[in-house]
Simulated scan of single mutants.
Amino acid sequence: MDETRRLMCIHPMKKDEHYLYTFPGKKTKLWRVVDHDMHGSEFFRIGIIHLAPGEGHGSTHVHENAEQFNYIVKGEGVLLGEGGKEVGRFRKGHVIFVPEGVPHGFVNDSEETLEMVYVCSKDAVLPVVDEMEPTVEE
């Protein structure tokens, strides 16, 4: 059996089983848990985002050639559309679907950390993190 094609149980917060991204001057964290480079995924990029209260993507961004969905594990917030305009609210248990090429963003306007799981197509460009180096963990 091809070693890259194996069943895995991944602990997303365990060191060496993810890439962690932190944002200068912010408390928000993003864990990239599954992708082609890390685990040989042929179809998905999967991660976890913890948006601190008052933080988020204040402006919208677009993923070309990729769809995305987010599952809200904890908390609530505002879904932003084109031009940063509010298009809806979400909370624990909701799913957000983002079609290819549609501007979107998220803001945690609550007083608790917003936790969400994201899944997008393997070749998705994630402008928020793809230009960053992972945070060095100690």
Results as ranks from 00 to 15, higher is better:
residue 1 M to L: 14
residue 4 T to I: 15
residue 6 R to E: 09
residue 6 R to I: 10
residue 7 L to G: 08
residue 8 M to P: 00
residue 8 M to S: 07
residue 9 C to L: 12
residue 13 M to L: 15
residue 13 M to E: 15
residue 17 E to R: 01
residue 17 E to N: 04
residue 21 Y to S: 00
residue 22 T to K: 15
residue 22 T to P: 12
residue 23 F to Y: 14
residue 23 F to P: 10
residue 26 K to G: 04
residue 26 K to R: 15
residue 27 K to T: 06
residue 28 T to Q: 08
residue 33 V to Y: 02
residue 34 V to C: 06
residue 34 V to R: 02
residue 37 D to A: 09
residue 38 M to Q: 14
residue 39 H to C: 00
residue 39 H to N: 09
residue 39 H to Y: 11
residue 43 F to E: 11
residue 43 F to S: 13
residue 48 I to Q: 03
residue 50 H to S: 10
residue 52 A to K: 08
residue 52 A to G: 07
residue 53 P to K: 06
residue 53 P to Q: 05
residue 53 P to W: 06
residue 54 G to F: 03
residue 56 G to D: 06
residue 62 V to T: 11
residue 62 V to W: 04
residue 62 V to H: 03
residue 62 V to P: 05
residue 65 N to E: 09
residue 66 A to F: 01
residue 68 Q to C: 00
residue 68 Q to H: 02
residue 72 I to V: 15
residue 72 I to H: 02
residue 74 K to P: 08
residue 76 E to Q: 12
residue 79 L to P: 01
residue 81 G to M: 06
residue 86 E to R: 09
residue 88 G to C: 07
residue 89 R to H: 14
residue 90 F to R: 14
residue 92 K to Q: 13
residue 92 K to S: 08
residue 93 G to Q: 04
residue 97 F to N: 11
residue 98 V to S: 05
residue 98 V to G: 02
residue 99 P to E: 09
residue 102 V to M: 11
residue 104 H to N: 07
residue 105 G to C: 05
residue 106 F to H: 10
residue 108 N to Y: 11
residue 108 N to I: 12
residue 109 D to K: 07
residue 111 E to N: 14
residue 112 E to R: 05
residue 113 T to H: 06
residue 115 E to L: 07
residue 116 M to W: 13
residue 116 M to C: 11
residue 117 V to R: 02
residue 119 V to L: 07
residue 120 C to L: 10
residue 120 C to H: 08
residue 121 S to P: 05
residue 123 D to F: 10
residue 123 D to R: 11
residue 124 A to F: 02
residue 130 D to F: 00
residue 131 E to W: 12
residue 131 E to Y: 13
residue 133 E to F: 04
residue 133 E to S: 10
residue 133 E to T: 09
residue 135 T to S: 15
residue 135 T to D: 11
residue 136 V to Y: 14
residue 137 E to V: 15
residue 137 E to G: 11
residue 138 E to M: 12
